[in-house]
Design a protein around this nucleic acid. Structure first.
Lengths: 201, 201, 201, 201
DNA sequence: ACTCACGGGACGCCCCGTTAGT
DNA sequence: ACTAACGGGGCGTCCCGTGAGT
C-alpha cells in the first residue's frame, strides 16, 4: 500500500523551487540536485516526479503561466465595475506580468528566462507562439470592442497594435528586471502606451 | 618578438565563433571547448587569448555592440540627406538591431542572450544600463530636436517616450527571434510606433 | 532501500588506495582519477563516496592513524607481561610508526606526507597538533609512572622529554624512508634513546 | 651584443622566489608561472634560466643549503672563542636550521618540503643522503674530539649519537613549523639533548 | 513510492614545455 | 636574451540519467 501523497501539490512545490532558482540565477542555475535541495527532497524523489530536466522545466513554465492567469481574475479590483471597459480588461491582464511585487518578480524572471530560451529552442518557441497568439487574440478582441464603443480610434489596426503592445510589455518586463527603470515606471509607461489605444481610462 | 600575430583580429575571430554558438543555442551552448572548435583552434590557444570564460563572453558582447554601432554609420542610406530628420536618424540606429538579415539576426541572438543573463547577473546589468542610458540619451536628444522643428508633438515627454521606444525595440527583437512575427513585421511595427513620435517621415 | 553496500568498508578500500599512491609518489601523485583506478572503480563512484579530494585525504589520514593505534594493541607481544613496564608500553606504541614492515612503511609514508603538508596547511596543523598532544600526554603519563617506580631518573622533565622523544621518532621515520639508515637502525636508535629515559627494559 | 645580466644573481633571485612560494604553500604551490610572477619576470624569461621545473627546484634546494652553511660561519657569535668547544661548534651549525627567525623559517619550510619529497623520490633521496652523510661525519668528528678532551662520555657511540641527533633536529624542525612547540622550545629541546652529549656548555 | 549506487561525460581552469621569431 | 604563441594533457568538480533494490 503506497504512502498517500498528493501528486499534484508535490509537483507544484517542485515547480516553485524551480521558479526560485530561476529568479536567483537564471536557467543555468537550475539543476536537478539544486531543485531537489531547494524543494527539500532527495534527488531520487524529485526524479520520481520528473524523469528529466526537460519535463521539469516544462511543468515549471506551465504552472507559472497558469498562476499569472489565475491572478488576473482573482486580484481584487479597486473599481470592480460590473462591465469593465476594454482598457480595464486589458490592463488588468498585462499588469500581472510586470514585476510589481515579489511574486510577480519571480514570474517575470521565469518568463524572461523562457523567452530567451525560446529564441534558440524551436520546440519551446512553438509553445510560446501559442501563448502569444492567445494573448494577442484577446487584445485584438478588446481593441475591436473599444472601436465599437468609441474608446479606441478606428484608424488603428487592432492586430498590429496588439502585436506592438505585447512587444512593449515584454520590453518593459526585461528592462525592469535589469534595472533600466523601476517596476512603477514600467507600469506608467504601459499606461502611457494604453492611452494611445484607449481614449477613456 | 615572437611569431607575428594580430592579437586583435584573432580575438575578433574568437568573438565571432562565440556569436555563432550563441545564435545556435544560447549562452548555455557556449563552452570553452566548443568555442575553440568553432574557431578552429586548440583549447590552449583559445585560453591564450581569453583566460576565462567570463572575459570571453564580455569581449564577445562588447564587440557585438561595436559592430552594431559601426553598421549604423556605414550602411548606405537610400535617401542620404545631408541633414537627415530626427526620425531618420533614430530609425537608422534602431533597425540595425532588428534581425533583418543574417548578420543582424546573429547580433539579435547575442543581444537577447545578454539581456536575459543581465536580468539575474547584476554586474552585467550595470553594463547594460550604461548602454541603455546612452541609447536613451541619444533618442531623447532627437525627440527634442523633433519638437523644436515641429515634427514631434510637444505634449510628449521625450524621456518617457524614449524609454518606451526602447522597450518596443527589445520586445520586437525577441518576438521576431521566437517567431511571433517576421522581422519585416517587426520593422513595420517599429515604423508604426515611430509614426506616433514623428509626424514626418 | 537500494543495493546493499557496506559504505564503511568501501570507504576503507578507497583509503587504502590513497595510501598506496601516497607511498608510491607522495601527495602530489594522489589525484581523484588515480585513486579511482587504483581502487578499481569509476571516478563517479569514487565521488559518490567522497565528494571532494579534501574529504578523501582527511579520511585516508584518519583511517591510517586508527590503523596504527589498532596495531598497538593487537600485535602479539613477545613478553606479554601482565603489568608491562612504562618503557614497554611506550615502546610498543612508538615502534608501530617505524617502517619496520610493508604495512608500517606505507603508514610511515602517509604520515610523513601529512606532516609536510601540515607545515603549510593550518587546518591540517590543527588536527596534527591534537594527535601530537594526545601522544605527548600518554608519554608524559608513562614517564611519571617510571619516575614513581624508579625506572626513570627523577631529574628529567617529563613534558620536555616527551616532546623530544616524539621529535626523535618523527626524525627517525623520515630518515628511514629516505634511506639515511635502515628501519632496523632506526629501531635501535629509538631503543638507545629510550635507555636514557628508562633504566630498566 | 647581448644585454649585460648577471646570470648568477638572476638565478639567485629566482631561487628566492621559489623559497617564498614553498614556505607559503609547499611544493605543490610552486609552478613555473607563479615563480615567474613572484620573481617579477615573464614566464619565458624564467624558462630561459631554468629549462624545466625540475632543474629549478634542484637549484632552489642547492642554494638554500648553501645559504644555511654560509650562515653558520657568518653569524656573529656571542662568545667568539678562538678555540670553540665541540658543543659550541655543533650547536652553531644546527641552530641555523631551526626556524628561529624569518629567514630560517623559510629555509626550514624548504628543507621539510624536500625531506618529504625525498621520501618518495629516489634521485632526491640520493642527494639528501650525501648531505646527511656530510653532516653526520662532521658531528661524529666533533663527538670524537669531545671524547678526547673529556667533554663527551666515552661510552657513547659517536656514529649512533650523530644519527639520533640529526633525527632530533629534523623532528624539532617539522614540529616547530606545525606548531607543536615554539621555535624557542625547539631550541631548548636541542640544548637539552646536547647536554647528554657534551658535559660542558 | 522512494532510494542509493553508479557510469560516463562534460566543464572551466591550469600548467608545462616547445618552437618560431625577433 | 628574451618573448609570444601554441599544443596537449590533466585536474577537481559537477551533473544527468539509469537501474537494482526495498
Amino acid at each position: 500500500m503506497p504512502k498517500k501523497v498528493d501528486h499534484r501539490s508535490r509537483r507544484a512545490d517542485i515547480a516553485e523551487a524551480v521558479w526560485l532558482l530561476m529568479a536567483r540565477g537564471g536557467i543555468e542555475e537550475v539543476t536537478m540536485r539544486r531543485v531537489a535541495r531547494q524543494a527539500r527532497m532527495s534527488l531520487g524523489q524529485l526524479q520520481h516526479y520528473f524523469a528529466s530536466k526537460e519535463t521539469l522545466l516544462d511543468h515549471a513554465f506551465e504552472l507559472m503561466t497558469e498562476r499569472v492567469v489565475a491572478r488576473t481574475s482573482t486580484r481584487e479590483d479597486p473599481e470592480p465595475d460590473e462591465y469593465p471597459s476594454s482598457r480595464t480588461v486589458v490592463r488588468r491582464a498585462l499588469v500581472e506580468m510586470l514585476p510589481l511585487d515579489e511574486e510577480r518578480t519571480i514570474d517575470a524572471h521565469v518568463w524572461v528566462a523562457f523567452l530567451a530560451r525560446a529564441s534558440t529552442a524551436p520546440e519551446l518557441a512553438v509553445l510560446l507562439r501559442k501563448i502569444h497568439a492567445e494573448l494577442q487574440g484577446f487584445i485584438i478582441e478588446e481593441l475591436r470592442r473599444g472601436q465599437r464603443d468609441g474608446s479606441t480610434p478606428v484608424h488603428l489596426d487592432p492586430s498590429r497594435e496588439a502585436r506592438t503592445l505585447l512587444a512593449v510589455l515584454d520590453g518593459l518586463i526585461v528592462h525592469a528586471l535589469i534595472g533600466h527603470h523601476t517596476p512603477a515606471e514600467a507600469e506608467h509607461a504601459l499606461d502611457n502606451h494604453l492611452d494611445m489605444l484607449f481614449s477613456d481610462g
